[in-house]
Design a protein around this nucleic acid. Sequence first.
DNA 1: CTAAAACCGGAGATTCTTCCTCCATTTTCG
DNA 2: CGAAAATGGAGGAAGAATCTCCGGTTTTAG
Lengths: 187, 187
Amino acid sequence: MLADAVKPLRKDAVRNHALILAAAQEVFAEQGLDAPLEDVARRAGIGIATLYRRFPGRQELVEAVLTAKAHEYLTAACDAMHADDPWLGFSGYIEKIFELQAADQTITDLLTLSLPKCANIIALRAQISAAQQAVISRAITAGVLRDDFVADDVIVLLLAHRGVVQSNGPPDAWRRLLRFSLDAVRA
Amino acid sequence: MLADAVKPLRKDAVRNHALILAAAQEVFAEQGLDAPLEDVARRAGIGIATLYRRFPGRQELVEAVLTAKAHEYLTAACDAMHADDPWLGFSGYIEKIFELQAADQTITDLLTLSLPKCANIIALRAQISAAQQAVISRAITAGVLRDDFVADDVIVLLLAHRGVVQSNGPPDAWRRLLRFSLDAVRA
DNA sequence: CTAAAACCGGAGATTCTTCCTCCATTTTCG
DNA sequence: CGAAAATGGAGGAAGAATCTCCGGTTTTAG
């Protein structure tokens, strides 16, 4: 493999690249990963053609956004792993990801969607899984989490949570579900 | 108000009316209330124009379908109210409506959607509410249901359930949520 | 400073989907 | 049988989203 000499982007191109990424984060968070790309361009304050020049298609943009999100998520899992108390670690983790998802539709996709050719997201996902499993195992060993709880249950909870968040009912209805969820899984 | 002499429909028209209704039940159950009406016509085996002649617009069709669903739902609530055991009544009710919703997307809409000018659905909904409240109150009084459980929590559970059902994960993931839900709300 | 190269933006062609109507043909019923 | 009622499918209207062309502008290098 030869090191390909990538021609450096012009500085306005670099700036727009960043603007697009930031706008995409916001728009995807609000509308989901299939939001119209025109909305992204409008929020970035640039033309649609520019967006297509920086990111050949939706896939590339989605990958960039999800990679950033994955880092955020991974931080939550690591924090939980290192918490003092096993139950606070676990429950804080669930609360945290519920909050993330309440503010950002893309979180569920991050864990459930299959991103075919995106190695770095797959790698991040593996790290998240590992940290999450540590949180779960520790809580079960400490006797504070029901012993039949498995990693897939986190996804079930996230899917359930999304159902509540996406409905247009009272904006804090999901806190009620959080409470139910924690009551349900505590040993 | 004069009694308006409604001209009787021709027998083929009556038959098609029934075919459309049956098809709409199936299609809406699978795809949601905003499924294309062409799909309904196709499943009914009739032309699109015929559908529009029998039902002027989507609204009328939706109301007809939801009215039928509401009866089904009301039956579940009444059964639960008359069950021998308060907990079995409540838990059986939740399980029943989860099953209904797993097979039929429209159930959530029935309780959450506002159907402006449809008196009979509003009436049915009131009956459902009353029966459901009886089931809840009885279970709380008997000390088998957490005493802060309210009617709106049923909607939270249904919304959560829908989130799981609509995801394209394992088709029985929702049973896991059912288990969590019942564990969470039992006193 | 100047000109080439890179970049920008938005109009608009394209495709897709759903809704709904027109009208020639078929079915029902007295 | 014949008139009235009903049917079905083609196709126009409308809206949403994707992606490209190209005239004009900004950056960069010599």
